[in-house]
Amino acid sequence: MRTDIILSGVGGQGILSIATIIGAAAIKEGLYIKQAEVHGMSQRGGDVQSNLRISSEPIASDLIPLGKADLIISLEPMEALRYLPYLRKEGWLITNTVPFVNIPNYPEETGLMDRIHSLSHSVSIDVDSIARSVASPRAANIVLLGAASPFLGIEVEKIEESIRTVFGRKGEAVVEMNQKAFRAGLEIAEQSIKK
């Protein structure tokens, strides 16, 4: 197997936690992994992305070439589209629909959503309100992870186990909250795939 993923969002939204959970699951499965992150100045409310590659064969580059990403997982709709040239034509784009507006020239929301829906494979969900209703606003990134989990090439159960591994030391309540968020995202993705 091989899955190349671009994770994107705005600094502070929690894309690195998503990467950590997928990474932990991949290692448990004995897969190869490379993950390039962004640290430093660009984290201050700017656009951030991470390249995450998991594979049963050794991986050469830390960076995903143009047109080779199987998945874009984004916590913000405009940030999802920023990396479009990296997405395979048959790849999936999974994104939060809630804009993070911290710039004066943020584009029209409907235009962004139209563009996302025009792709052959996309899942777009309001992870913020789902997180609020089933768990906590802080778990928005885990709702998105749930929505992306059927596309990762790792069994969904293994990802769920990984949530326990990563959040385990923060106590049972945090683990449960995140598992709830994860399952809520997963259900929505499954509905989208059926459509």
Binding site: L84, Y86, P107, G111
Partner: peptide, 19 residues
């Protein structure tokens, strides 16, 4: 390079900012 999706013209820069 393979043919890829063109860059989306709606996307604007999002520079870092003071918190």
């Amino acid at each position: 390079n393979e043919e890829v999706y063109p860059a989306c013209e709606l996307v604007v820069p999002r520079p870092p900012a003071l918190c």
